[in-house]
């Protein structure tokens, strides 16, 4: 709860009622818009648009903070390399709305990467992907974070994906930070029961904690509806 709101506050899409967000000691509300966009990129939950452009032009939008209305050779090069990185270069000239939901997600991610910001905020980037692509994207993001020294802040509902690929997990519950630390510190049986009200067993697999969920009807947890947002 409050995940998207938190990311929106960090990226100044929303103004927090109290407190402040600082990047390198500077309050984000004092950084001019396009300058902030060079520091921080944001990838929304993808959706179809009424007015689709080609994939290349959609990714090109990420160059706006750098180039404005112009399109330079360098922009084209960066667009091409991010398309290759997401392995959607063969879709470059297709219309955005012809693609599947998973491909939309990849295009929006490529747009975020083309922005070449040091911090990347992602709102459920793996939501519409199958497990193979979920892992592919999460793997890629971790590698980018490590090789380019980026900070990738990503909302993720899949605890196992989060555990496997992240260096640090922040567990939110009812609008506050419940726990914050390495996957081993955060993903414990007690925390999962606390936040989700579900029993589980933590199994360490390939050096990372994995969650085995238990179905315990005696908990008296009544599932009224699905969806966690």
């Amino acid at each position: 709860m409050g995940k998207s709101t938190l990311i929106h506050c960090i990226d100044r899409i929303l103004t927090p009622r109290s407190g402040s967000v600082r990047v390198d000691g500077r309050d984000v509300s004092e950084i001019p818009g396009r300058e902030l966009a060079k520091i921080m990129g944001y990838v929304p939950c993808s959706s179809g648009t009424s007015f689709p452009m080609s994939v290349a032009d959609t990714v090109m939008m990420g160059r706006y903070p750098h180039s404005g209305n112009r399109r330079t050779e360098e922009d084209l090069r960066i667009v091409h390399s991010t398309l290759c990185l997401m392995s959607i270069d063969d879709l470059a000239l297709r219309s955005f709305n012809e693609l599947s939901a998973g491909q939309h997600q990849k295009v929006m991610l490529a747009r975020g990467l083309a922005q070449e910001s040091r911090i990347l905020l992602l709102d459920e980037p793996t939501a519409n992907l199958d497990i193979r692509h979920q892992m592919g994207v999460a793997h890629l993001l971790r590698d980018l974070a490590h090789s380019r020294g980026m900070i990738v802040l990503m909302i993720c509902h899949d605890l196992n994906i989060a555990s496997r690929y992240s260096d640090r997990i922040i567990l939110l519950s009812e609008g506050t930070v419940h726990s914050d630390g390495t996957p081993e510190e955060v993903l414990t049986e007690a925390n999962i029961r606390d936040v989700y009200g579900i029993g589980c067993e933590i199994v360490t697999f390939e050096g990372r904690p994995h969650i085995m969920l238990m179905d315990n009807p005696e908990d008296g947890l009544q599932v009224v509806g699905s969806g966690t947002d």
């Binding site: 990226d11 100044r12 899409i13 001019p32 396009r34 921080m40 944001y42 959706s47 648009t49 903070p65």
Partner: peptide, 16 residues
């Protein structure tokens, strides 16, 4: 272009 794509994206790209 950015505004017609996503409003939040526009804000985060430095567009009002």
């Amino acid at each position: 272009n950015i505004l017609s794509c996503d409003e939040n994206l526009a804000v985060s790209s430095g567009i009002r």
